[in-house]
Structures are given as C-alpha cells and as structure tokens.
Simulated scan of single mutants.
Amino acid sequence: MLFPRHGLLGPSVVSLLLIGSVVADDARTRARDALHTLQGWYNPQSGIWDTCGWWDGASCMNTVADLAALDPSVMETARYVFSNTFNVGPVSNPHPGPEHKTVYTRDNQLSTPVNASLWLDQAYDDDGWWALAWIAAYDVTKEGTYLELAEGIFESLVNAWGTNCGGGGLPWNPTSRYVNSITNELFLSVAAHLANRVPDRKQYYVNWARKEWDWFTAQAFIGENGTINDGLLDNCQNNGATVWSYNQGVVLGGLVELNKAAPNDAYLPSANKIAKAAIETLADANNVIHEFCEPQCLPDGTQFKGIFIRNLRMLQEASPHDLYRKVISSCANSIWNNDRNEKGQFGINWAGPIVAVVDASTHSSALDALVAAVAVSGT
C-alpha cells in the first residue's frame, strides 16, 4: 500500500493512479497490436521486412527491441527477429561497398568470430543504423555477440574518419565528398552507446564521441533557428537543405548517452535546444510531427519521424519536459485514431488521413511513436 507524506492516499490520488494504469495498459496493447501487424511484413528468408530497404530494416529492428525492453510479453518475437536476422540478414545487403573488408571483433576470441564486414554497404550512415540496431538487441537480450558486432561496425567507421571540413567527421560514403549530418550524428550516437556498454573500452568510445561532437558543433550543420540541416556544401557551409526530422533526432540520443558516459553541463542543454527548435518547426497545432515531404516520402523519408520520436523519448527520460511528453502522446494518439487503415497499418501522415503508400517503413515509423507512448504513459 502507498502512503503519502501526511496519511493515506485520498480518493482523487487513487483515481489518478488508476487512470494512469489504464492509459499505460492501453498504450501497451496498441503497441503490441502494431508489432503483430509489422511482423506480417517480416521475411524469414531475407532477415528484414518486405517493402523495407536495407537501413530501414535496421530501424525496424531497433523499434522491436525498444518495445521488448518495455513489454516482456513480446520478448519471444524480439528474440526470434534478432536471431534470424543475425543469421540471414547479410543476404539482403544490396551494395557491399569499397569499405567491405573483413572486420572481426576486437579480441577475435570467439569460436566463430563476428565478421562485421557482412553488414557494411556503400553508405556509412547505413552502417551506423545497423550498429545501433544490434546495440538495442543487446540491451534486451544481453547477448554479447550482438554488442561485438556493433563494435566491429564502429571500427569500420573509425577507419573513415576525416573530411575536407576541418579534417574531421565522416563523409556520406567511401566514394563521396559529401559531408552530411546524419552520418556524423550516427557516429556520435554509436560511440556514446558503446561507451556505456563496454566498460574496458569506455574511455576509447567516450573520446570518439567527444571528438565527433566537438567537430560537429564547429561546423555549420545547425541553422539560425537551432535546427539541423541535411549537410554541408563543398566549401563546408550549411547547404540549407531540408530540415529532416531524423537529423533532429539521432543527435538527441547521442548526447543523452554521451552525458551518461561522461557528464557535461553542455550536452543536455544542447539536446534540449535542438529538440525544442525541431518541435517548433515540425509540429502542427496539435503537437503532431510532420515531414516536409508528406504525403510522398519514398524511399527514405517514410522512416524519419519515428526515429525523431524514438530519440525524443530518450531525451524525455534524461531531461523531462512536458512539451516532449505532449508531443509523444499526441503523435501516438493521432496515429491510432487518424492514421490507421482497416488492416491496422499506419501511413506517413500521422495526422491522417492515409492518402499515400502504406508499408513496413511507414508502419514501423509510427510504431516508434506508440512505443515511446508506452514509456511516457506513466509520467
């Protein structure tokens, strides 16, 4: 029984607790139902979800892991996905790239070394998505092989360090000079995540995360209103390209993890500034996030908003703000009420109605918001 400071809980307090419990149960039920629908696209032979691209598959897997961390009832599904994808997923790698060389785990002591090169393609950002996905799978299973795979992928990214912009950062891919935001945000996030999960190499990963963030903030990625643009011109100035939601999101998770590994008074304030600017730019009057490409966001933009909400949830847990909770809850409720077809599938426009393609990417992106709502439903 719970006791307040001055006696038993009053009826109004008990009612609020019961309402909160109902809301949390409803959020979990919605997310479970949406996961069941998502699995209708999962292809055991390819190891990813039909209608998804290579990197979108990594994002889908991250979403499954995030829900399993909150709801043990879906753990069996999650474990199946992780194991099957680990074993067969590389057959779906569409473009093994110039960086495709054998990258084993750092100690090579496993009876079957993890060959991270199987997960590399011709884009460093794709590599980063898979590293984060395997870290998420490790978090809910504690299967060390998954973490070692993420470490191996990160080492391939380290080998790509260095651009014409300040001598640091990563280019978009091995054959391009384009320096974009998402690739470098992913490098930051993977390094910071690993710093909190690999104790004997913590300082190594902290150093890389700090190096990336120091370099990133010295460049022109962040616009005047505090949002992050797509990347840099050849002269290393902001290219003024679209303010995509995922560019506002991945950096939040990276800063949260870096602050956890190596606390600094500037990391969370920087994350909060970016998050609030993004919401000001991307949210409608009902606190529902939109992408500038809606309703036609193929092939990649269909995944972006869920990634923003996933990382906003991480920031909410580390640095709570009523605005973040409202955005997460508003997006989840609007998706369920306005952006769901008769098959229980979600589209790209979270405010509804569905007027464009519905696939595993649009659905899993929306599921990210439902998962985040589970996390904040008790707050």
Rank of each mutant, 00 (worst) to 15 (best):
205 Y>K: 09
139 D>R: 12
343 K>M: 13
85 T>V: 04
306 G>I: 03
185 E>Q: 10
51 T>H: 04
50 D>M: 01
292 F>V: 15
64 V>R: 02
37 T>Y: 04
170 L>S: 00
131 A>F: 04
65 A>T: 01
266 A>H: 14
6 H>T: 14
319 S>C: 05
69 A>F: 02
379 T>W: 07
88 V>K: 05
362 T>E: 10
8 L>Q: 09
249 G>S: 03
379 T>R: 11
100 H>Y: 14
332 A>G: 01
240 G>L: 05
86 F>Y: 15
67 L>Q: 01
267 Y>V: 05
255 L>E: 08
336 W>R: 08
335 I>T: 01
204 Y>N: 12
352 G>T: 07
379 T>C: 08
244 W>L: 07
32 R>T: 02
23 V>I: 15
258 L>H: 09
204 Y>M: 13
336 W>S: 06
295 P>F: 05
46 S>W: 09
111 S>D: 14
273 K>E: 13
84 N>F: 08
196 N>I: 10
233 L>G: 13
195 A>Y: 07
162 G>C: 10
368 D>Y: 12
221 F>M: 06
110 L>S: 10
327 V>A: 04
309 I>H: 05
171 P>H: 03
267 Y>D: 08
299 P>Y: 11
97 G>T: 08
322 D>F: 14
5 R>S: 14
127 D>L: 08
139 D>F: 07
315 L>D: 00
378 G>A: 15
34 A>R: 05
244 W>A: 06
78 A>Q: 05
304 F>G: 00
187 F>Y: 12
37 T>A: 10
170 L>K: 00
357 V>T: 15
209 A>T: 05
105 T>H: 12
323 L>P: 03
258 L>K: 09
270 S>D: 10
337 N>Y: 12
35 L>G: 02
305 K>L: 07
254 G>L: 04
195 A>E: 06
223 G>L: 13
161 W>S: 10
82 F>C: 04
217 T>H: 13
229 N>D: 13
297 C>E: 03
12 S>M: 12
301 G>D: 08
84 N>D: 07
291 E>P: 02
266 A>N: 15
222 I>H: 01
122 Q>L: 13
222 I>L: 06
352 G>A: 11
316 Q>N: 09
331 C>L: 00
143 E>Y: 09
251 V>W: 09
159 N>S: 15
143 E>T: 12
238 N>E: 11
131 A>G: 01
319 S>T: 05
332 A>Y: 01
63 T>Q: 08
14 V>D: 03
149 L>K: 07
82 F>P: 01
172 W>C: 01
165 C>A: 11
38 L>Q: 01
117 S>Y: 08
379 T>Y: 09
80 Y>Q: 02
247 N>L: 05
142 K>W: 12
60 C>P: 08
25 D>V: 13
83 S>Y: 11
267 Y>E: 06
